[in-house]
Design a protein around this nucleic acid. Structure first.
Lengths: 139, 139
DNA sequence: CACAGTCTATTAGTACACAAACGAAATATG
DNA sequence: CATATTTCGTTTGTGTACTAATAGACTGTG
């Protein structure tokens, strides 16, 4: 039996998802060139919550501890986020968006929703719902 | 109007796909710890074709020129792939799997298909087909 | 033939993403 | 209360992914 029967690259979910993500990122960076999807996700979550620790932010945005540190460092370097150790628990680094960070989030929240619309544009509304639901069940 | 109405992180395709890819990669590396999904994709395509230029391999596996170079370099370093400039067109770097590369591909082709099965396991067969078709239309 | 445009590969730079290991701080348990 | 465990953040190392710039090789057209 030929192993090429059981494995065809183009039919693997991993490959198809990778390509879909590539297209999504291209759309994102054309609509929001000022920051990456990951940075926007972190900033958005932080604006939603007001403040959190770096670690919890990572959990809420599905980022590794090492990844979230890098993302937060870059947001801090651009003065979009502030960080300060928590008095009552000195392990924790509390984060909050700056005024500039909030402004940037507000500026792009609509655009970010538009990124999703454009990414899903090849599908009709019913299919979009289906896709989202199926993807969520994969997690 | 509140911008949080229009943007909720968890409802964006990008976020959901990113998480699904994360889970997929975790499954992949538990079943095939010896190489990454990208490396396997490149090796698989090369085994399928026998030989190609580095550039074309990139196009066929949806990798950037810079990305494919890194991936191929690592495969070459492990003696899974050979590379030689093409006589008739000295710009091109022709690649081919080594015997060792073919053996590794054969060893894991089944497992790689299994990765797809496990990734899609939360869905029934009909849903799996739907998801794949919907994703393909996003590309 | 010349030379403009195209194709291929490489390099440098930036940004995610994860594993592993570390130290410091907090909590749990005996 | 002492110590074992857990939590949090950082660092290091490897790998993917894209941009932009560069250089060499080919192709097409004048």
């Amino acid at each position: 039996m030929d192993s090429s029967d059981s494995y065809v690259l183009e039919r693997q979910v991993g490959f198809v998802m990778r390509r879909a993500v590539q297209r999504h990122i291209a759309i994102f960076s054309s609509l929001i060139p000022e920051m990456t999807p990951t940075q926007f996700a972190a900033l958005a979550k932080l604006c939603e919550l007001g403040q959190t620790s770096q670690n919890e932010l990572g959990r809420l945005t599905s980022m590794d501890v090492a990844t979230v540190k890098g993302v937060v460092d870059r947001l801090r370097a651009r003065d979009l986020v502030t960080a300060a150790p928590l008095e009552s628990d000195k392990r924790r680094l509390m984060l909050a968006p700056t005024r500039k960070g909030r402004a940037l989030y507000r500026k792009y929240a609509q655009q970010a929703a538009e990124v999703t619309r454009q990414t899903l544009a090849p599908l009709d509304e019913e299919e979009q719902r289906q896709l989202m639901q199926l993807l969520e069940r994969l997690i």
